[in-house]
Design a protein around this nucleic acid. Structure first.
Length: 193
DNA sequence: CAAGAGATCATCT
DNA sequence: GATGATCTCTTGA
């Protein structure tokens, strides 16, 4: 049920695609929240200029250089957290950003945290998703093969999806056009079509 | 609706 | 001292 570490050790683009449709579980003292992953982005390694680790190994990117199947969480723009799932082998820095989920369980909890009643506004973007799921830097480095945050494989078929350029990476030169953003086709909970 | 500005802070030079 | 894997609100048509 809980996805094994070997899943995350695969090539990052494969992981990003195969995560679509799977369920992400976050357990917290206030309760459990679960969402169906509908949008991801791949940051595929040191040569990828959109990947934080392309600028070298630093305190912030350290987790991406570690073993697959751990959470890389960082704080951005003074407001928002982003959740990534570390992929590939040790010393190869790559990860998948979770950009949007479809709320499944713990919806009242999400509404309270987001201070919003709109189902579609709860997790349709990486910052919103982290707020709904109470994800912050205390989860940086957390093991995804643990009890606190993990992905379930319920054996669902891979949904039909589209590939698009990644969002917010204008600085990445030739890499900004690469279609490394994946989203479930026709799903209303993605961040943008 | 589309476009723009502003909010605000950890991280790295 | 600059900047960013964002979001929300405001403006104007």
């Amino acid at each position: 049920m809980n996805i094994p570490r070997s899943f995350y050790q695969q090539p990052t683009l494969d992981v990003a695609r195969q995560l679509l449709g799977k369920h992400l579980v976050r357990k917290h003292g206030d309760g459990t929240t679960i969402g169906r992953i509908v949008e991801t982005e791949a940051y595929i390694g040191p040569q990828d200029l959109a990947c934080h680790a392309s600028k070298g190994r630093t305190r912030r990117t350290e987790v991406m250089f570690g073993p697959a199947g751990h959470a890389y969480v960082y704080f951005i723009y003074g407001f928002y957290h982003m959740l990534n799932l570390v992929t590939e082998i040790v010393d190869y820095p790559a990860a998948v950003l979770i950009r949007a989920v479809e709320p499944l369980e713990g919806i009242e909890l999400m509404k309270g945290r987001r201070r919003s009643d709109s189902l579609r506004d709860l997790a349709s973007g990486p910052g919103k998703f982290c707020e709904s799921f109470a994800i912050d830097r205390s989860l940086n480095g957390a093991d995804l093969c643990g009890e606190v945050i993990y992905v379930l494989d319920g054996g669902e078929p891979l949904p039909k999806f589209s590939a698009r350029p990644r969002i917010g990476v204008d600085y990445a030169g030739a890499w900004k056009k690469k279609p490394f953003r994946f989203l479930v086709r026709g799903n209303e909970f993605v961040s943008s079509p």
